[in-house]
Design a binder for these strands. Structure first.
Lengths: 108, 108
DNA sequence: CAGCATCCGTGACGATACTG
DNA sequence: CAGTATCGTCACGGATGCTG
């Protein structure tokens, strides 16, 4: 997942490592969309503007592997899959909201 | 500027746009290093682990263009250049600190 | 509906050598 | 010291089409 073998001996968590988890181009947007509750795959695809299927799948897998979202499959026809934030993921809510506010004020 | 007129300045400020400003691989690490005060180019190169000259220059230019850092040149021999956070940049301090705390608790 | 497979271009990134 | 210049690589990301 990561290009470099950072902390084989280090214990400290670097910003680089953190960004490896939520620093992807679409991660925060997906998390942001999930703040309002669980979402189906197609809903996320619609809510996260300009993302495409491949990227959404990729990011969701990455986030699931990192314990930020939970994936629930329902054996319906047609199939239903729902994504929810974990506690770990929900703790990002104030941070992302603050970042967003910063952006609204300073970026435009 | 308040939240009230954030629709008048520009219609949409997306997370994507915000991340275009501070979402670079090294941006946050550089900002983080600048929290403790102004730094010379070589200091940043040393403080931001694993960054190289080209990337540091690139990110600093981007951040300067976005009003996050200020670049000061001193006509000394050898030349001295110092970088400082603007108000806009310093407002990121609590956000990045929170993100860092989140990472320490959840990423490792 | 959900999401995998495939092709493919762009550009991000790194290493290094060089300059005022 | 503080950058430029140059080159090469590869991962990211976009656009499909296909399947259970």
């Amino acid at each position: 997942m990561n290009k470099k073998n950072w902390s084989s001996s280090k214990e400290k968590c670097t910003l680089q490592e953190i960004l490896g988890v939520i620093g992807g181009k679409w991660s925060m947007s997906i998390i942001y969309a999930l703040f309002t509750g669980k979402k189906r795959f197609s809903e996320l695809e619609r809510l996260v503007l300009n993302i495409n299927t491949r990227m959404l799948v990729k990011e969701l897998k990455n986030m699931e592997a990192n314990g930020i979202v939970v994936r629930e499959v329902f054996a319906t026809v047609p199939p239903t899959v729902e994504y929810t934030l974990t506690t770990k993921g929900r703790k990002l809510e104030p941070i992302i909201n603050e970042l967003y506010k910063w952006g609204v004020e300073y970026v435009g």
